[in-house]
Amino acid sequence: MILQALAFYVFAAVTMASGAMVVVSRNPVYSVLFLILAFFNAAGLFVLIGAEFVAMILVIVYVGAVAVLFLFVVMMLDINITKLKEGFLEYLPVGALVAIVLALEIMFGLGVFGSTPGTVMTLGQHGAKVAAVENTRAIGQVLYTQYFYLFQVAGAVLLVAMIGAIVLTLRSRPGVRRQKVGEQLYRSKADAISVVKVTTRGGV
């Protein structure tokens, strides 16, 4: 129990600290790296409450894919760092507003303002359910039955977003010579070579 409590405080402290560093640090590359650290420690916190499936998905999706592409883009930017930090106080009210709205939403979900139907379970109930069924199985059982339509809608939204991104970046450039692997493979001797009998002094 001591080790778990210790692990919780370490993960929580590092999450908070790196979350703050994302905003404060001067170099945008450092910001992304601190963001990755925050994701990673959040995954540690999920493991501690017994939600190992969510923890692994967090690492795979956010750390392994999203943050890599994020880092990829930020590294290639040629940013004037001092100029970037000038607007810090300007954006502070907007940022604070967003933070307050998110905090209120979390409190609403946890039933601080009186319970609403369909709110999340409290931690005690959650722990009891997790102990009974394997984590992944528990998610699968509700995801493909109770929340089936919502799951499909989420998939459709992602598909639309993906098609939108492709449409925005797709442009047809004339005069590009692409390698057509299929055509190369299906070329036969007959349509590649022709044997010509050249008449003497006549040329081809």
Binding site: I36, E52, F53, M56, I57, V59, I60, V63, G64, A65, V68, L71, E134, N135, T136
Partner: peptide
């Protein structure tokens, strides 16, 4: 652990960093 495959997949995706 019960999510061994996912753990391995997650860790191997970190190698890129």
């Amino acid at each position: 652990i019960n999510v061994g495959i996912l753990y391995l997949f997650a860790i191997s995706s970190l190698g890129v960093y």
